[in-house]
Simulated scan of single mutants.
Amino acid sequence: MFRNAVRVLGVAGLATAPVLGAAAGAVADEVGPGTAGVRLEYYVPGQRLLAPGESLWFGIEGMPPGWDRVEITSPALQKPALLVPAKKGARESTEPADDGGPRIREGLRAGSYPVTATSHGRTVATTRVKVIGEDAAEVFRFVIGPAGALPGGTTPARVRPGSDIQVLLNDLRGDPEETSLTVTSPVFTGPVTIRTGSPDDPGCKCDDPGTVYAGRGRVRPDVAPGRYPMTVKSHHGKQTTTRHVTVAGEPVAHGPSPAAIGAVSAGAAVLVAGGVIAVRRRRSRTSG
């Protein structure tokens, strides 16, 4: 069922009518009241979270023999959705037509909303859908790793004190007018700027779709091993996202910074100049 769905968002539903079969273990993150038996599912094409105006698909499984229709209602939906058997005698509903499915109401506030499946006036399953705000971020990856390496997965890698690092963020709902973000952490030598179109973007297919921000920074050489927060504010300061970074291992040794090299060079130049002046003065006194 739902072979065309890109990502599964939620699986839910427990029967409330005892005629629907023997109880079974719950298989969902969120379930309705009553005994198990009928399972109500929903899928979101192309996205992991739901926002107002976006579509989703419903499906139902475990219906008793002979069922012919189930109506899906929710205060979150623009209008009810109708499910019918996949074929004669099937206990599950058919795949929906490629019409985008029912939609979340425009202007809906972020929150969790009840969904009810009824068949001829009897409730057969319930679940809830989570809806985010219209301008909310959906951060799929916010990771850190050694500079020059492909940041894998969705969990920040361990980094060593003093190491050069690469930070990457993928927002599935990135603001097109926001081309750079600032990442802060007590482990960084300073704020790290990440940008769209950055040469540090590894071009990983796992980041399709989404807006990718990438940039480089350095871990403080004196930071103690441990777990530290890494935070970014996006969507013009409306969204704050935090992940945790693990610092472990021996510090990475670096040569003096360009500023320090410049200061040493300037000091050496002063010493050389002073020596030349002193020699000239001695020569002048000798010749006199």
Rank of each mutant, 00 (worst) to 15 (best):
A137L: 09
G162K: 07
P221F: 12
T123H: 05
D222M: 06
D98W: 07
A214L: 03
G148D: 04
T118M: 04
R158H: 11
R195M: 10
G226S: 11
G217S: 05
D171S: 03
V124I: 09
R227N: 14
I144S: 04
E134Q: 13
A117L: 04
T182E: 10
R91T: 12
P229A: 05
K130F: 15
T123S: 11
I144A: 07
R122Q: 12
P156E: 10
L169E: 07
T193D: 00
V124S: 09
R122Y: 10
P225A: 10
F188R: 04
G210W: 06
S198D: 10
T184G: 00
T179V: 13
R220Y: 08
P225W: 06
A136R: 13
D208A: 07
G100E: 05
P191T: 12
V183N: 02
V124P: 06
K130T: 15
D164P: 02
V129I: 13
G210R: 04
G121A: 00
G133Y: 00
R122I: 03
G197P: 08
L169D: 09
I165G: 00
F188G: 02
G101R: 00
V183L: 06
G152A: 14
S119C: 08
P199D: 08
R195V: 11
T118L: 07
K130D: 14
E138K: 03
G210D: 08
A97D: 15
P221C: 06
T127Y: 08
V124D: 07
A90D: 14
S112K: 14
V183R: 02
T94D: 15
G174K: 09
S93R: 07
R103F: 04
G148W: 07
D201V: 02
D175E: 13
